[in-house]
Structure formats: C-alpha cells, structure tokens
Computed example of a mutant assay.
Amino acid sequence: MPDSTMPPVLRSPTWARLTRFSGKDTVFAADLFAREAWATLARELGDGGAYSFAEATALMWVRPDAFAAGVARKVLAATQAAGFRPLAVRPVRVDRCGARALWAYMCRWATVERLWLLDALVALGPGLLVLWADDTGEPAAARLTALKGSNAAGRRTGASLRDVAGSPNRLLTMVHVADEPADVVRELGILCPWPDRAALVIEAAARLTDGACCLLEDAIAAVETELPTLGTPAPDTATPSPGDLTAGPLERRWAALWAAAHRWPLLTATAGPAAWPEQESRSPWR
C-alpha cells in the first residue's frame, strides 16, 4: 500500500491496457481527469490493484431524468437482475462544467440546443453513482455498456436498461455508464472529488474481494428527497424557450425540458473533430 503521508502524484498508467481503441490511450494520457483518478487508484490500491479494479468494475450514473420520471429504481433492479452486484453507491450532483467534462469526447455531434438541455437536466438535482461488479465473470464495463442500450430508441436491439427506463430519445437517456475500463477511471475523476473518490474506491475494492453487496436504499432515498418523482409530463404544444428550462418550480422546468427534448434539434449535420480514430466511424446519421 502506498505511503498515505505522501501527496498524490498525477501519474499515468499504460492506457492501452485499459482501452480497446487505437489512439484513445494517447488522448487519455493527457486528460487531467483520467490522470487524477488514476493517481487515486494507484495511491489507494497500488498499480496492480488499480488495473484490477478498473478492469473488474462497472460505473453507472443513474441520471436526474430517471429520478424525475420515476424509473430509477426499475433501472437499478434490472441491473441487479442481470447479474451485477453493487459495490458502492453515492448521490452525486453534476454541474454544467461536470456535464461538459463527462461527455466531452462524445458531444461532437451535439447542437448548442442539446448542450442547453444537458445543463437543464443536471440542474434538476442529483443522480446516483453506483459501482458494480459483474458476477458472470465477463468484463464488467463492457457488459454493462451493452446492457445499457443505444441513446436512440430505434437502434436498440433486445432488452436494455434504457428500454426498462422508457428512454424516449437521445437527450432523455436516463442512465449513463462508463464504456470500458479507461472510462471507469476517467469518470471517477469527474464525478468525485479527491477525498470522496478515495473512500469510494476503498469501499468498492473491499467488496470486490469479499463478494459482499452494498445497500442502495439510503442513497436512493437521499436522491429522491431532493428530486422526487414528477412522472411523464403531459404533451405541450408550445415550444419552450431557454428561460423555461431554468426558471420557476421544479415541475415546470421538468415539463419544459421534456417538451424541448422532443422538439429542439439534438444533432448537427457535421461533426466536430474526433478525439481518436474509432470516433470517425461513429455517426448518429448512419
């Protein structure tokens, strides 16, 4: 175990070990969130333990729209039914800058309207961060990503968590997961500050070893206290303005967000620059 009296160092792993995509390792080696979170993992678990943790853990953020729609518990139950075991859980609030960081590499097709909507979504209240183990023995993050389903309802095949949640479109996706081990590391750096991240990692690593589950109920209830179920808003024929997303009571903002997510353009005709070659092959239009 590293000396706890020493300050953390912004170190980097061999990122190619944690990603299957050519070029992504180079991008993450320069990403401050990724480097910061790896420093936490290596400090608390040692380098070998850090690799094992990233490879054996799946990260999920049950988003504020899932709580507003009243489907968060269904998503969590479906995840457990699929063979995932909860290791650690925290209510986590993401601000505008956190939203930009979380989806920095994946918003190359996003319109400005979509960014406004993401800001309004995270402003609704907290979501729920859960770290999972996959007791089927498969790579945890990859299998949870497959279970999550596409952000476009028409592209989903088979049952998915987003089908369980009733996700209607690319904006109201209800659940976010880290795609692979490299993303598990980076997103821990975005979603948790240093002390909270260290405590979360230590707790989850202990349960990875002993086969225990964490209890979800208290954390779920804490989020629900701040963001109660609002349900699916009634159809509204009026197109919301940006001000409708930020002003007034929670119920009004949620209704405006729901309406705007169905009316505002979410995809640009051409993409911004790709961060690594694999992204060039991803097009929401194909």
Rank of each mutant, 00 (worst) to 15 (best):
P2L: 00
D3R: 02
S4I: 10
P13G: 08
T14N: 15
T14S: 10
T14Q: 14
G23W: 03
V27S: 04
D31K: 05
L32P: 07
R35E: 00
R35P: 00
A39K: 03
L41I: 00
A42T: 08
E44M: 06
E44P: 05
E44G: 02
L45N: 11
G46W: 00
G46D: 07
D47R: 04
G48S: 15
G48R: 14
A50G: 15
A54L: 08
T57N: 05
T57K: 01
A58K: 00
L59Q: 02
R63D: 10
P64H: 11
D65Y: 09
R73V: 14
K74L: 13
V75S: 00
V75R: 01
Q80E: 15
A82M: 11
P86Q: 06
P86K: 01
L87H: 08
V89C: 12
P91Y: 13
R93S: 11
G98R: 03
C107L: 14
A110Y: 07
A110D: 11
A110H: 11
A110W: 07
E113Q: 13
R114M: 01
L115P: 04
W116E: 15
L118W: 10
L118D: 15
D119V: 09
A120F: 03
L121P: 00
P126Q: 09
P126G: 04
W132K: 09
D134G: 10
D134H: 06
D134V: 06
T136D: 10
A141E: 05
R143T: 10
R143S: 10
L144N: 00
L147V: 07
A152W: 15
A152D: 14
R156V: 06
R156Y: 02
T157N: 11
G158R: 02
A159I: 11
A159C: 11
S160T: 15
L161T: 06
L161M: 08
V164Y: 11
S167E: 03
S167F: 05
N169I: 14
N169R: 14
V175W: 02
V177S: 05
V177E: 03
A178V: 00
A178C: 03
A182P: 00
R186Q: 14
E187T: 01
P193I: 06
P193D: 01
D196A: 14
V201F: 06
E203N: 06
A205P: 01
R207V: 08
T209A: 08
G211F: 12
A212F: 04
C214I: 08
L216K: 04
L216M: 02
D218V: 10
A219M: 02
A221N: 14
L227Q: 01
P235W: 12
G243N: 06
D244W: 08
D244Q: 07
G248M: 06
P249K: 05
L250E: 12
W254A: 04
A259R: 07
R263Y: 09
W264K: 04
P265Y: 13
A269K: 15
T270V: 13
A274R: 07
S281M: 08
S283V: 04
P284K: 09
W285V: 10
